[in-house]
Amino acid sequence: MIREGTLNIVILCLLVAVPAYAYVMNEPFTITLATRAVIFALAGVGLNLALGQGGLVSFGHAAYFGMGGYAMGILASHAQNYDPIFDGAFLIEGTNSMPVIWVVAVVSSALLALLIGALSLRTSGVYFIMVTLAFGQMFYYFAISWPAYGGEDGLSIYVRNQFPGLNTLDPIQFFGICFAILCLVLLFVDRLNKSPFGLALNGAHQNEERARTVGINVYKLRLVAFVISGAITGLAGALFADLNRFVSPTMFSWAISGEIMIFIILGGVARLFGPVVGAAVYILLEHFLGGLSDYWFIYLGAILLGMVLFAKGGIIGKLAKKETHHGG
């Protein structure tokens, strides 16, 4: 057993060491895999804020992941075709600048989370799980049948978007960008969790009545957390689209919502680094089990099942000492 803080540093080091080693050994695909893990981790960190700290089990975070992805897809495809998005009283052009795309992705998924959260937070428990799922499905079917941006075919972006001063097509540089964002977001979430806001959020999760009696507006508190959560997952979606240079409605599918949830539970609910470990382990499982057999989903299912049944608290919960301020 080690302290969670120490464990977190070990995790970060590993996360850098693997692609660094792959870079030296000239194994670009391993870097791509690590980038994928980092991006999924970011999506998980977003959901974990709502799910872990706030106790809001959202089964529809694919909606924000997809929203971020389409923010990238739509902006970049217009830039690629030199075709303005809106050409009326004023002109809106597409762009292939990553920072601009990120801002648009964050803002649009935050707005979406505000809308969905405002409606969904009227319910609780299983109803909340299911109504978020329903909103996710709504966007999935919309994206499939709406012809303007490719429908089920999705959108291909032939060249990765630009970041000033870097060559984003180089796997290690793109990994660097994603890793830096993940670290910044982790730092932000850590500060947030320790702030009065985070403590109140966790308090409302542990005991809603008590939070109310001390005068906290629980609905508003949760809505803010939900919006931040959606915005982070949306940012991950934009990066994921750039990793694949492709967006499609599958980003909205309920399987993605489920996967993001799996990262959190594998790693440890409400642990800052839970989704990071969970995503990394999931990617490793997917990569190595896939080579074992055509029926590798059976093994994946069995491992997940074993984790839920026998390893409560996830991987971090098994490895790290209990820390008092964490709920779950």
């Binding site: 194994e27 670009p28 695909f29 391993t30 791509t32 895999l33 994928r36 999705g154 994921f240 694949n244 240079r245 492709f246 499609s248 599958t250 980003m251 399987a255 896939g290 055509d294």
Partner: peptide
């Protein structure tokens, strides 16, 4: 031979793997 799971992002990932490694 590799499986794409009928998911576009997995297909892209496996294609990258086939090409790069």
């Amino acid at each position: 031979v590799e499986d794409d799971q009928r998911k576009p992002d997995i297909a892209v990932q496996v294609a990258d793997k086939m090409i790069q490694s």
